[in-house]
Design a protein around this nucleic acid. Structure first.
Lengths: 140, 140
DNA sequence: ATTGAAACTTATCCACT
DNA sequence: AGTGGATAAGTTTCAAT
């Protein structure tokens, strides 16, 4: 899948600037644009590359409060909640983690009122524990 | 900054596919490529758009264990640790959250041995509490 | 697996609106 | 603030290696 140093260089470059052109990457690593294109196509097909995302500032979209919520669920509710959760637009990402049916999610909400409503909604299904984000120190 | 529905449509589209061409986005929302380009340039300048990232599967890079680590630090160590931490390649992202000098970070490591070493390194500065990721349920 | 050429598509600039 | 035309740059495909 990731064959050699050139693949790693391409991924390293794309990671931080997914809008870079093949030509630009090629100049950087000493390869023709078409070779870069073919390598990237292979990395996409083998799902080494899982997508190209744009980082948008939630604050500038009117979502001024971000938080991590840790939540444990009863076993019987777990899978139904996971389905319900997919329709919550507040959730930026969510992972299942070790511990008794535990989830960690990152959310973006308008304000503390919205946060409260969101927590109340979660509390119907489990025990959410919230930690509001003060600042992002590292973002890769 | 985000002026109207067209801006929101552009951001919504770019969010999930940051490699889309201006022409392609223009076709989608009924605008010329040059108009799309000008809007995106403005969204970049006003930092509504904070970057274009490629999602790479850590497992396919030989990083088979991912985890969230919650960590509280002593007040006097906090800022020096934040500087040290910036050189840890294992950290994918890290946020300061409410609570006594608390951090939440997401990390990717090779295996459980690597995880142990990493936790030991953190433990010199504070009290890390680790939750290994079993699966990603939502990724936006 | 990489190159370079050909054919096609896109980006960027600018005059016009 | 958007359009459309012109030009430079980029993408994609493919034969050759």
């Amino acid at each position: 899948m990731v064959k050699d140093e050139l693949d790693r260089k391409i991924l390293c470059y794309l990671k931080e600037n997914s809008r870079a052109s093949y030509a630009q990457i090629g100049r950087e690593i000493g390869l023709s644009a078409s070779a870069v294109g073919e390598r990237i196509q292979r990395l996409e097909e083998t799902e080494v590359i899982k997508g190209y995302k744009t980082l948008i500032d939630p604050k500038k979209m009117g979502l001024s409060v971000s938080a991590y919520i840790l939540m444990s669920l009863e076993s019987k509710n777990f899978h139904s909640f996971v389905e319900i959760m997919k329709d919550y637009p507040e959730i930026e990402h969510c992972s299942r983690v070790t511990g008794e049916n535990c989830l960690i999610m990152k959310i973006n909400v308008k304000d503390s009122g919205h946060l409260q409503k969101f927590i109340d909604r979660l509390a119907k299904h489990g025990n959410p524990s919230t930690q509001v984000i003060l600042s992002d120190l590292i973002t890769n």
